[in-house]
Amino acid sequence: MRLPVLRQDDAGGGCGGCPPQDAPDSRRSFLRSTVAVGAGFAALGAALSPLADLDTDKVFAGEDFFREHYKELTAEDKARLFADIEAQIDREYGVQATVGDPRPLPGVEFVYALNLSRCDGNRACVHACVKENNQSREPEIQYIRVLEMPIGTFELERGNQYYSEKTPRPGHFYMPIQCHQCANPPCVKVCPVEATWQEADGITVVDYDWCIGCRYCQAACPYWARRFNWTDPEIPSDEINPDMAYLSNRPRSRGVMEKCTFCLQRTRKGRMPACLEACPTGARKFGNILDPGSEVSQILREKRVFVLKEEVGTRPRFFYYFDELSSRTTEGVAS
């Protein structure tokens, strides 16, 4: 192996080995590289300067960085983790929240049914959901979209979700769309890190700390049900719902996906979802499809229900149906 040998030039003098004709160049190149390296360091320092303002609550550090996936957490891990999250919520919002982890109830599979003849597009469900699930208020993230469509049509792309006139508008009907908790969910299939999965009662959940924010699930969902936190969620402290669950309504952070979970923090404890309780028209029905006496079972037996975009094969657990209109209103909705 040949080692590089420094060439000694005896013809020159002066600096003990340096070739005299190279001396000015060396100085120049030394200066040049010094300035370049200095600028490089300055740029690096400038690029890293936002780190000085970093909120340590918002980064994964130390133990958090090595946190396991939700499914691999032991009971002790969960207890410690939930206590940490509660402490963080207290620091950030000054709210004593309880972060729980209600598990799917045995023998329960949740199904939603929505009566399109009753819905009058008032959007109480939309905002009850925002309040219950601690969605960001600024910008506001809404899980439920209500489409206003002309009666006699069913073209979703002609539906207007931004309506603000008095409802129901004559000649129109309203179609609320939220997560359909599909039995064959495309959003779960596309997740590259398995941060989202379907649980035994049919609810598809997201581990917000495992999500990398790639938004594949948002692209895969045919129902426009997933939302992305583009900014740090802003929630006024007095509007925080302190009854939280790890997989549903605990505060999220920037850069993660979120979605409707049928209010699992309520429904897995036997309660009704917030959107249903706020609905003034009784258009929303929720329950256990495995119980033949439940309201949703009755509806699926009695009414001609349909699912949205049946042809895409997602097998939603969210059913729509129309009903007789006669007693709904005398103010000429159908005119």
Partner: peptide, 14 residues
């Protein structure tokens, strides 16, 4: 008995 028409709560921001 018929429900009155009413102003809906705000929709998504635009």
């Amino acid at each position: 008995p018929a429900f009155k028409r009413g102003t809906p709560l705000p929709g998504p921001n635009t």
